[in-house]
Write a protein that binds this DNA or RNA. Sequence first.
DNA 1: AAGCGTTCTGAAAGCGCTTACAATACGGCT
DNA 2: AGCCGTATTGTAAGCGCTTTCAGAACGCTT
Lengths: 346, 346
Amino acid sequence: MSRSGYTIYDIAAEAGVSIATVSRVLKGDSSVSEKTRLKVQEVISRRNYRPSSIARGMTSKTTHTLGIVLPKLLNPNYAMIFTGASDGAWAAGYSVSLFPWRSITDQEGNPALLLAERRLDGVIVCVEYLPPHQQELLGRSLGELRQYMPVVLIGCVPADLDYPAISYNMAEITQGIVEELIRLGHERIALIGGMEEDRDELRRDIGYRQGLEAAHLPFVDSYRVWCGGTAEDGEAAMDRLLSSLLPSHWPTAVIALNDMVAMGCMAAARRRGLQVPEDLSVVGCGNLFCAPYLVPPLTSIDTHQQQLGRRAVELLLSGEKRREDARWEWVRRDSCGPAPLPKEKT
Amino acid sequence: MSRSGYTIYDIAAEAGVSIATVSRVLKGDSSVSEKTRLKVQEVISRRNYRPSSIARGMTSKTTHTLGIVLPKLLNPNYAMIFTGASDGAWAAGYSVSLFPWRSITDQEGNPALLLAERRLDGVIVCVEYLPPHQQELLGRSLGELRQYMPVVLIGCVPADLDYPAISYNMAEITQGIVEELIRLGHERIALIGGMEEDRDELRRDIGYRQGLEAAHLPFVDSYRVWCGGTAEDGEAAMDRLLSSLLPSHWPTAVIALNDMVAMGCMAAARRRGLQVPEDLSVVGCGNLFCAPYLVPPLTSIDTHQQQLGRRAVELLLSGEKRREDARWEWVRRDSCGPAPLPKEKT
DNA sequence: AAGCGTTCTGAAAGCGCTTACAATACGGCT
DNA sequence: AGCCGTATTGTAAGCGCTTTCAGAACGCTT
């Protein structure tokens, strides 16, 4: 209990040397004689002394702590990024602090206040879609933050933002999915979710339209449904979609914003009597741990979130100022199959 | 980019006052005249100055950072605890750093090294079952850690460990589940997962046996299966269980360590042609976000993990040295139903 | 024994902020 | 004008460590 209060002075005194010498053995300086080193180390380990990294930070201007800002840790996608970041950081002797999303977008007073005061050695910011007025706020916060520490962005990052960043190229991914679905014979393909991102090169829409266009399929407005990122959102969106159409026009395939939304879609479809994948193919994104255990097991796009977190830390620590796209990869399971044969029932 | 290098000296010089005065307006000391305060604040906000919390920590001996140590952030249960902790911490002006499990159990050299050096204002440690030799190591690490900062434990914490703690009373919970299942007519109830915890008062086994005993049901050894905490583990364990028994002796209900294990169990059961809940009732624990979207929706025990994380922070910051049990609550969905009528087919 | 090049050590000056404690300023009173 | 109490502000001493620079020790050489 008694808060251990040893300082370098205590150790120095007990070992009969100066604090400079203790400091030297602490950092493994070779200019300390073997004899002295042993003596000092003995005291250190007997007293269980640990130098204060706060004091060290005073001179080194370093905290060995990184920050991560993300919208919602309960979203397993972010938990994966965090995990990867933490692993990478730990391997390099750093730890990672979580900062809630509002720490960087709160209106009240000074935006990045706490974050900037913390003098972290770097911050990873996971960017989600924001309404325009918040975007501007975020921009300012990031700018201010960057005066104090390196910042790396993850997510749907506009290309003209000159931060080091790893982005999901949702346009490319979505186009890839559309093409695959078309290859499977689907012609009525719905796109569910994905707030409107702000830059063309990243918008799911672009990929979606391009994919359709390439196959000379029409873009049907009612097959494009917006929603948030939770399973509930997905369920509601799917409900809306199906309600708004005659069953004969129901899509035969759905591309979901992420796996949670996909879960919701499948639930809504099931409630309407649709069989997945016989009547409806569903593709998710993110490849969550539960994807293989859904019924049917969910086909998803793996975006290698953990790897992505690690990579963000690398960028942060190396100071490389580059932008990269996240890798992505199909994980084919059973929720996605050939289009049903047209039955012309209605 | 140019790392903002303002110090309190710069601000003081520019405002034409002493650093003491700047420090005073920084902390809102009322002994500064209105005129001076405005002048100083003007400079501060014009220069966008943020006092370094490192330097502040020097004198205050405070980092406004808490730590959390947990086995695996990818386990949503831990993500929930972390989220709760982070919310609570943030509300009190703190942030929370993640430390990997091995930061406290690694053999190599000094155990709690980094953690202790960090001089956090407190640490939450989520304890899982550990093999005996690691338990001892953990004990030592915690002891050392506690010399430097308050520690709160979460999980299956032995009652004789005199740390402030919030524990799951798995015995009570498991007994509650058994009783409910018996009430539904089940007589062959399996218990899957849960490494052997080390203290009687916490062991699932105890609750399991007591529940059976109270209803004069026999304890059948082969209905007790051990496994780790992932869906894969659960699937494998369920497979082992079913393989080892004649179908006529298959359990009609399964209690799973957690929801992920429950997911695995359901998958394994389904593969054997068992219908949930008609042939087999499944109860999980943790009430994950995906529980409602499994097929059938999973009945689970909600242990209020987020609330628990918040509470842990409260204990940490208040210094209260007490032990509490986590609240728990049934979340009844469809994976759990009346026992099938005995068909005596084999 | 004196001289010299190495090795080791120690003294002291920060790092950026907080906080007694001392000093100054100001307003009002006699 | 001379005093005093209060409201402000400044000075300086840390906080626990790192690091530069200088001094002490030691081992050889001649």
